[in-house]
Simulated scan of single mutants.
Amino acid sequence: MPILEWKECFTLGIEQFDNHHRHLVDLLNRAHDDYLADADVVRLTATLHEFFDYAMYHFKIEEQYMEEIGYAGYAEHLEYHRNFSGQVAAMEHDLTQVWRNLPMEMLSFLQNWLTYDITIADADYVRFSAGNNLKECA
């Protein structure tokens, strides 16, 4: 059972970023499935690390795009990425050092973050690029 289902309104209209977001949703759901199936710590941790690594790759490409289009909110979006990166670093440390009930808390955090990232943060630069012609996600 997925923790986050892809909604058509998640589609931003930039194929590369839509593909990135779909992949992140898939990775999050795979981690959730691993958690529900009581997968061993190594497997679940590997999936979460893959999610984190891919999110950092996505940020790099996205930041280049925002800079190219002269996105007015670039500095704020960059700070948003840096804050998430810091939270991820703390979670990765906790994954290897603490464990306990952390996976479900982490999965819930990532679900909320990814939904916000697609529908609010990323949709803003897409609206900027498309001249405000992007529909809101309900």
Rank of each mutant, 00 (worst) to 15 (best):
R22D: 02
L27K: 06
L36M: 13
I3V: 15
S108Q: 12
H32N: 06
E67R: 14
M66W: 03
S108C: 12
L95R: 01
F128K: 02
Y116V: 12
E67P: 04
L102R: 06
E136C: 05
V25D: 00
M104K: 02
S129C: 10
A72Q: 08
G73L: 09
A31V: 14
A75T: 15
C137P: 09
D40C: 10
R22E: 10
P103A: 00
A31T: 14
H77T: 11
D34P: 03
M104F: 11
Y57L: 13
L24I: 14
I3H: 00
K7L: 13
H23M: 07
F10I: 15
A46T: 15
E5Y: 07
Y80Q: 10
F128R: 02
N29F: 05
G86H: 03
N83P: 00
W6N: 04
L48W: 02
R82W: 00
T11K: 13
I3M: 03
T45C: 08
A89V: 11
A55Y: 04
E79R: 14
G73V: 12
F10L: 12
Y65H: 12
M56Y: 02
D33Y: 04
R22Q: 13
R30V: 15
Y65A: 04
V41Y: 08
A37F: 03
L48R: 02
I69W: 03
I61G: 00
N133C: 08
Y65D: 06
Q111E: 13
A31C: 13
Q16L: 13
L27V: 15
T119H: 00
Y35I: 07
G86L: 08
H93K: 10
F17V: 13
T119E: 09
H21A: 05
V41C: 02
V88L: 11
T11L: 14
L134T: 12
V42R: 14
H21Q: 06
A72W: 01
D33W: 04
A123T: 11
D117G: 02
M1Q: 10
H20M: 00
R30I: 15
F52E: 00
Y54V: 11
G131M: 11
L95G: 02
L44Y: 06
D53G: 10
A121E: 12
K7Y: 03
E15P: 08
I118V: 12
H49Y: 11
A138I: 14
F59R: 00
Y71T: 09
A130S: 15
H23I: 11
L36Q: 13
F51K: 10
D53W: 06
N29P: 12
H93E: 07
A90K: 10
H77A: 09
V25F: 03
K60G: 06
T45L: 04
R30Y: 02
E76P: 05
D33I: 12
E67L: 11
W99V: 14
H21C: 06
Q97M: 12
W6G: 05
L114Y: 07
E76D: 10
I3Q: 00
N101E: 09
G73R: 01
E62Y: 00
E63S: 03
F84H: 03
A123G: 05
L48D: 01
V41E: 09
T45F: 01
F109V: 10
W113D: 06
N19F: 07
Y74Q: 05
S129K: 09
L95A: 01
